[in-house]
Nucleic acid binder design. Structure first.
Lengths: 213, 213
DNA sequence: GGCATAGTGGCACATTGTGCCAGAGTGACA
DNA sequence: TGTCACTCTGGCACAATGTGCCACTATGCC
């Protein structure tokens, strides 16, 4: 993608942020988010409380980077898509790409995401973070989708496509995270997300099947 | 629907809750959520701060009842649907019903919802509440949808249908709330929500329309 | 009327999150 | 190498959030 003109300071900031995020994730998963104080996260991450709040605006926010890393990659891929390519095809392609880790770092990132998501099934505070991340992602997705939509598409359709795409990814991740067994199987995750997205774009096929009691 | 065996105490609790909610909504819309203290809401609503926190677990939560009232009605209607009726038809019917106010109280409730939603477009804290309400609604919708789904439907499809329904309603409300002009036109709101839902269930029709630059 | 129960208010307190200022590290330039 | 500007960091004070605890009051039931 882009080069790394990261100065020493920039690199140390990235490291500090990631260190705080993973420390927070460990503690939250261990004891639940509200049984952990900001002071404890800061101490274990090796920074002062005041510094913690310079990196993150709330205590819960500390784990957000672990959840947004995939979404950020996805938005970048969509934004870079060829406007001549069909939007739906581009979305399928990018969904598949972002759920298929290619480097060791990407795999580790995915593991952290799913692990945290797994912990959040029994922690309301973490669910809030996840929901916020997804809402932000949907808004972000709208702005990168707009330039590659067919010319005549109206605002409502743009919103719907962004919602469908974000929901497909979200639901696939949630479903995988809730099951212990499937939590570490990226292939299943990718195919599930694609299946979800295709059901949205091809119509949820329930019209001809009333329940007969 | 159901009768009102509300005792005096129960009625006063309802009144107090609504009074707090509307007081909070007024203040939040006026000055933004974080420029308002819990103490001020409590004072203007005529209760002690300690009592405020017995009704609501956080300051922002105070406005949630104004946003959930429609969703609650909707869930009740879906739960009461005939299992022999097609699910998609039932959803269209109930979406239309819940956005068509029949009494003066329902109309007032819808006004408060849209007004608050309008204010939340420029207030991050209120957006969080709205997102949380929608997530909760989606989960709730799953459990009331499950009994009226076709027998063979799998868990993923259930999740997708709930997400599609909740998203259709959410997006229609957001789109209406963001425009000053359409904010007070329930008919437009209902038709927009139906249109959104039908696009989900009939497939987002973008397959044959790549953008030609 | 009198009693059990449940809602209310006041108080103390841990925790959150921010403004402010002082110290320490980095990078540029002479 | 020295020094200067700039940014990151840490400590402190402080307003505000949210909770546990206890006493007080009103409702509902006999």
């Amino acid at each position: 993608m882009d080069a790394e003109p990261l100065s020493l300071t920039e690199r140390r900031k990235r490291d500090t942020q990631l260190e705080i995020a993973r420390t927070a994730a460990r503690l939250f998963a261990d004891r639940g988010a509200d049984a952990v104080t900001a002071e404890e996260i800061a101490r274990q991450a090796g920074v002062a409380v005041r510094t913690f709040y310079r990196y993150f605006s709330t205590k819960e926010d500390a784990v957000a980077p672990l959840l947004t890393v995939g979404a950020d990659q996805w938005h970048a891929l969509v934004a870079a898509a060829d406007p001549a390519e069909n939007v739906v095809i581009a979305l399928e392609r990018t969904i598949s790409a972002v759920l298929t880790p290619r480097t060791e770092d990407e795999l580790e990132g995915l593991r952290w995401t799913l692990g945290l998501l797994h912990a959040s099934t029994s922690d309301v505070a973490l669910q809030h973070v996840w929901h916020r991340v997804n809402s932000d992602s949907e808004v972000q997705l709208r702005s990168v989708l707009a330039p590659i939509m067919p010319r005549e598409t109206d605002s409502l359709t743009l919103r719907l496509l962004a919602a469908a795409s974000a929901s497909a990814l979200r639901i696939a991740l949630e479903a995988s995270a809730e099951s212990d067994r499937e939590m570490h199987d990226p292939d299943l995750l990718a195919s599930r997300a694609l299946s979800a997205f295709r059901q949205f774009t091809s119509g949820l096929d329930l019209a001809a099947n009333p329940r007969t009691n």
